[in-house]
Amino acid sequence: MNIKNSNLIVLVSSTLLVVGFIISIINTMVLVSPTKHIEGSWKEISWEYEKSENINADKKISDAIKTEICKELIIHEAEVWNFSSNGNLELTSDINNEMLSWTMKGRGNILELSHNTNKIEHYNIQVLNNDQMVLYFSTDIQAKGIVKMTFERIKEDKYAQKI
C-alpha cells in the first residue's frame, strides 16, 4: 500500500468517526429517549422464569410464587404501573395503590425504583417500545433464577376510561 492510499484511509476513517459522533449527538437530541418512552401506563401481562437453576421447572410463575416473590420486593403485587414524567411511579392494584420513585441508569437499560423507606431496586429493561415492556430481575425465592415481567402499554384513552 503506498503512502497516498494510507493517507486517504486515515482521512476517510477519521472523517467517518467524527461524522458518526456528530450523528450520535444529534440522534440523542432528536430521538425519543427511554425515559420518555417509558412514561405512561403499563399493564402487567405475565410473570415467568427467563432462566432458572432448575432445568425441569415450569417457566410460568404461579400466583402463589408471585405473591411470595413480591413480599421481598418494593413493587408488591400491582396490575398497572403508571410512570410520570416527574419521576413518580404509581402502582395500582385492586387492593391498594403505592407510590414509588423511578429513574434510569446506564444507557437507559436499567430501571431504578426507590421507596420512601430508602429501599432501592434495579430492573433490567430488556424490551421497551410503543406496545411492550419487558423487565428482568433476579430472585432467590424457591428456585433461584431470572424473572421476566412482561407489560403491555395501556393507551391513554383506555386508561382514562378505566379511571
Binding site: G20, S24, N27, T28, S33, P34, G108
Partner: peptide
C-alpha cells in the same frame, strides 16, 4: 446489540462513549 435491536438512541449513546 443495540443496532441489531434497532435501539438507535441507545446505539448513539454507546457510539458517543466509544468515540
Amino acid at each position: 446489540e443495540e443496532i441489531s435491536k434497532g435501539n438507535w438512541y441507545q446505539a448513539s449513546v454507546v457510539f458517543a462513549w466509544i468515540f
